[in-house]
Amino acid sequence: MEVRTIKVFTTVDNINLHTQVVDMSMTYGQQFGPTYLDGADVTKIKPHNSHEGKTFYVLPNDDTLRVEAFEYYHTTDPSFLGRYMSALNHTKKWKYPQVNGLTSIKWADNNCYLATALLTLQQIELKFNPPALQDAYYRARAGEAANFCALILAYCNKTVGELGDVRETMSYLFQHANLDSCKRVLNVVCKTCGQQQTTLKGVEAVMYMGTLSYEQFKKGVQIPCTCGKQATKYLVQQESPFVMMSAPPAQYELKHGTFTCASEYTGNYQCGHYKHITSKETLYCIDGALLTKSSEYKGPITDVFYKENSYTTTIK
């Protein structure tokens, strides 16, 4: 009895394709271990004539594949690729409408935090270190965002349907971005203890939790000093293409032309909904596939993004 075979390709990165001759009487799992086709788990399936010449994702289970996976995804987590594939199996079914010149995501599976993050990423200057993220990001900007969303979920250790947080998501993504040249110098002034300067680099240099107003941050924000008295913390120097200011959701007025974009969060910790506000020729609110415009805006804002380049204080 002759062994019926077909020729397929296996890959971990969709760049390096490895030619395989597979036995049609055995499952993919018996031949390769966990195997995925377009995100779908085909591990328990036997090869079919229609699979001839198709590319299958496999887990990096030998040295060659491990090197290829690390170079593309910059992670050695053995569960990463499987999590990416199972997320992709959902995100490829989502709709990605162009809204006001940006790629958004039609609401499904509690994905409003991903839509808000995706919209924000198209408006701030950011370059990702893992080629996987950078490639998928370019495709997302062009309207094909399924891979990018699935990668975000995998890097953030999230599953489809789980509630997510924009600030946490951005923080994970910033860790995989090139923020080497970003720098922030802060000064804390206390009447009792004097003053202390701190220099922050990388992710810490672009994120701040405690106030939404970048102007206020430049002037000074009140913080408790270690001595128990009130101290003032203010920005001395900022070198970065953008800054992200966050605070627990509270009524906040966004003035046209003073910011790049913002995240609105309605609801409580267990259950809520994100919308995205962007400042173009007027203010726009993007909620999944829905767009509304207004000249002014007041609502429960939790993150505001500002364009920056270089700032030095005039406070002496």
Results as ranks from 00 to 15, higher is better:
Thr19Arg: 12
Lys280Gly: 13
Pro248Ala: 09
Arg83Trp: 03
Leu173Arg: 04
Phe259Lys: 03
Ala205Gln: 00
Tyr73Gln: 06
Lys298Ile: 15
Lys127Tyr: 08
Lys93Thr: 13
Glu204Leu: 07
Ser295Pro: 10
Gln216Glu: 12
Thr75Tyr: 06
Glu215Asn: 08
Asn110Glu: 06
Leu88Tyr: 15
Asn16Glu: 06
Gly29His: 08
Cys193Glu: 04
Met209Lys: 15
Val166Glu: 01
Gly194Pro: 07
Ser79Tyr: 09
Asp287Val: 00
Phe9Arg: 10
Tyr84Met: 04
Thr199Asp: 05
Thr260Glu: 10
Tyr208Asp: 06
Lys201Asn: 11
Ile6His: 07
Thr91Leu: 05
Leu151Val: 03
Thr198Cys: 14
Gly228Trp: 00
Glu71Ala: 11
Lys280Ala: 14
Gly29Glu: 10
Leu81Arg: 05
Gly29Asn: 06
Thr232Leu: 13
Thr43His: 14
Gln197Ile: 09
Glu239Thr: 11
Val304Arg: 01
Leu17Tyr: 09
Thr314Ser: 12
Asp23Arg: 12
Val189His: 12
Asn309Met: 09
Tyr138His: 14
Leu254Pro: 01
Tyr284Val: 14
Ala205Arg: 01
Tyr297Trp: 12
Thr55His: 10
Thr27Pro: 11
Pro248Met: 15
Lys95His: 14
Gln216Cys: 09
Arg4Gly: 13
Leu212Ala: 04
Tyr84Pro: 01
Ser310Gly: 07
Glu2Tyr: 09
Val21Asp: 14
Phe174Gln: 02
Arg66Ala: 13
Thr226His: 14
Thr169Lys: 01
Thr278Glu: 05
Phe305Tyr: 06
Arg167Phe: 02
Ala146Tyr: 07
Ala262Tyr: 00
Gln122Leu: 04
Ile6Thr: 11
Arg83Ala: 09
Thr35Arg: 06
Ala115Asp: 05
Phe9Gly: 05
Ser171Asn: 15
Asn178Cys: 10
Arg139Lys: 13
Glu296Val: 14
Ala247Pro: 00
Ala142Pro: 04
Val304Thr: 01
Pro224His: 12
Ser50Glu: 14
Cys285Phe: 10
Thr226Trp: 07
Thr159Phe: 09
Leu212Asp: 03
Met245Glu: 01
Met244Phe: 02
Thr10Glu: 06
Cys193His: 02
Leu283Met: 12
Glu215Gly: 05
Tyr265Cys: 00
Pro241Ile: 01
His256Asp: 06
Gln175Tyr: 08
Ser295Asp: 15
Ser25Lys: 13
Ser294Leu: 15
Leu81Met: 11
Tyr208Thr: 10
Asn178Ala: 10
